[in-house]
């Protein structure tokens, strides 16, 4: 594991930006639902999802 991902589920509105832009496909999202951290082991801690999340719902910490 390269990173610890914290998803503040209450804040997530399910826009799908994190899933769409993640270079390692760490996230899964179904239409109308919130995102799930499906493959945290693939995360390279680039933190782009954290900065791009419009809902301020993600925190990525490098391990």
């Amino acid at each position: 594991m390269k990173a610890a991902i914290t998803l503040h589920e209450k804040r997530c509105k399910g826009c799908g930006i994190c899933a769409a832009f993640c270079p390692r496909r760490v996230y899964d999202i179904k239409p109308g639902e919130k995102v799930t951290v499906a493959r945290p082991e693939d995360c390279i801690a680039c933190r782009m999802c954290e900065f791009r999340c419009p809902d301020l719902a993600l925190e990525v910490t490098k391990l």
């Binding site: 209450k10 509105k13 399910g14 826009c15 900065f51 791009r52 419009p54 301020l56």
Partner: peptide, 26 residues
């Protein structure tokens, strides 16, 4: 710099405003 207790914010899903807020706080 953030009042976390105020989240979730009022903006729609996918709205860029949250990204700008996040960038400003960082």
């Amino acid at each position: 710099y953030i009042k976390e207790e105020k989240l979730p914010h009022i903006w729609c899903a996918g709205c860029g405003n949250g990204i700008v807020l996040n960038a400003l706080l960082h």
